[in-house]
Lab assay of single mutants.
Amino acid sequence: MEVKRLKVTELRSELQRRGLDSRGLKVDLAQRLQEALDAE
């Protein structure tokens, strides 16, 4: 999954699906999701 290409709504949805905080700026959301994906 290319996290950088996702829209903010898509980032928030993916973070919520993983039980992670979905608040913040797009750059923060993308970093949080990328870290979660790397840990999987």
Rank of each mutant, 00 (worst) to 15 (best):
residue 14 E to I: 02
residue 38 D to H: 02
residue 1 M to I: 14
residue 28 D to P: 01
residue 8 V to S: 09
residue 37 L to K: 08
residue 34 Q to T: 10
residue 20 L to A: 05
residue 25 L to R: 14
residue 25 L to W: 07
residue 34 Q to L: 04
residue 21 D to N: 07
residue 9 T to E: 15
residue 18 R to H: 01
residue 30 A to L: 08
residue 34 Q to P: 04
residue 24 G to V: 00
residue 38 D to P: 04
residue 29 L to T: 11
residue 15 L to W: 00
residue 13 S to T: 13
residue 9 T to Y: 10
residue 4 K to I: 06
residue 14 E to W: 00
residue 14 E to R: 01
residue 10 E to L: 01
residue 14 E to H: 03
residue 5 R to W: 07
residue 40 E to S: 06
residue 29 L to S: 08
residue 28 D to V: 10
residue 39 A to V: 10
residue 39 A to G: 12
residue 36 A to E: 08
residue 23 R to W: 09
residue 17 R to V: 08
residue 37 L to W: 07
residue 18 R to K: 05
residue 6 L to F: 11
residue 3 V to S: 07
residue 36 A to I: 06
residue 23 R to H: 14
residue 28 D to N: 07
residue 12 R to C: 06
residue 25 L to T: 15
residue 33 L to W: 01
residue 18 R to V: 01
residue 9 T to L: 07
residue 14 E to C: 03
residue 30 A to T: 11
residue 30 A to M: 14
residue 2 E to H: 08
residue 39 A to T: 11
residue 18 R to E: 02
residue 13 S to V: 12
residue 3 V to K: 03
residue 21 D to G: 02
residue 26 K to F: 05
residue 8 V to F: 06
residue 30 A to D: 08
residue 36 A to H: 13
residue 2 E to W: 07
residue 26 K to N: 11
residue 9 T to R: 12
residue 20 L to F: 05
residue 38 D to A: 08
residue 2 E to R: 05
residue 24 G to W: 00
residue 31 Q to T: 14
residue 20 L to I: 09
residue 21 D to V: 02
residue 39 A to L: 10
residue 25 L to E: 15
residue 10 E to R: 02
residue 12 R to K: 15
residue 26 K to A: 11
residue 31 Q to E: 15
residue 5 R to L: 12
residue 12 R to Y: 03
residue 22 S to D: 15
residue 23 R to K: 14
residue 11 L to M: 11
residue 16 Q to Y: 04
residue 40 E to L: 00
residue 30 A to P: 01
residue 7 K to D: 15
residue 4 K to E: 14
residue 1 M to R: 07
residue 4 K to Q: 12
residue 4 K to T: 13
residue 28 D to C: 06
residue 29 L to G: 09
residue 23 R to V: 12
residue 37 L to M: 13
residue 7 K to C: 09
residue 33 L to I: 00
residue 37 L to C: 07
residue 36 A to D: 05
residue 28 D to S: 04
residue 20 L to E: 04
residue 33 L to G: 08
residue 34 Q to Y: 03
residue 19 G to D: 13
residue 35 E to Y: 06
residue 38 D to K: 09
residue 19 G to T: 02
residue 3 V to C: 05
residue 18 R to W: 00
residue 37 L to Y: 10
residue 10 E to P: 01
residue 26 K to M: 12
residue 6 L to T: 13
residue 17 R to I: 09
residue 11 L to W: 00
residue 38 D to W: 05
residue 36 A to Q: 08
residue 21 D to I: 00
residue 21 D to A: 04
residue 21 D to Q: 08
residue 5 R to M: 12
residue 24 G to D: 01
residue 25 L to K: 15
residue 36 A to W: 04
residue 23 R to S: 15
residue 37 L to R: 08
residue 16 Q to E: 14
residue 7 K to R: 09
residue 15 L to Y: 02
residue 20 L to N: 01
residue 37 L to T: 09
residue 21 D to S: 09
residue 11 L to F: 02
residue 15 L to G: 02
residue 37 L to F: 10
residue 22 S to R: 04
residue 24 G to S: 01
residue 33 L to D: 07
residue 23 R to P: 02
residue 5 R to T: 12
residue 24 G to T: 00
residue 10 E to Y: 00
residue 8 V to P: 06
residue 20 L to R: 02
residue 40 E to T: 04
residue 17 R to E: 10
residue 8 V to R: 06
residue 35 E to C: 12
residue 23 R to A: 15
residue 26 K to G: 09
residue 25 L to P: 15
residue 16 Q to N: 11
residue 9 T to D: 14
residue 36 A to F: 06
residue 16 Q to M: 12
residue 14 E to P: 00
residue 17 R to T: 09
residue 28 D to K: 10
residue 2 E to G: 05
residue 14 E to F: 01
residue 11 L to I: 10
residue 12 R to G: 03
residue 6 L to W: 06
residue 4 K to D: 11
residue 12 R to T: 09
residue 31 Q to I: 13
residue 25 L to M: 10
residue 2 E to K: 04
residue 22 S to A: 14
residue 15 L to C: 07
residue 38 D to T: 12
residue 6 L to A: 06
residue 40 E to W: 00
residue 14 E to K: 01
residue 35 E to W: 04
residue 17 R to S: 11
residue 33 L to Y: 07
residue 15 L to S: 03
residue 29 L to I: 08
residue 2 E to V: 06
residue 13 S to G: 13
residue 30 A to N: 04
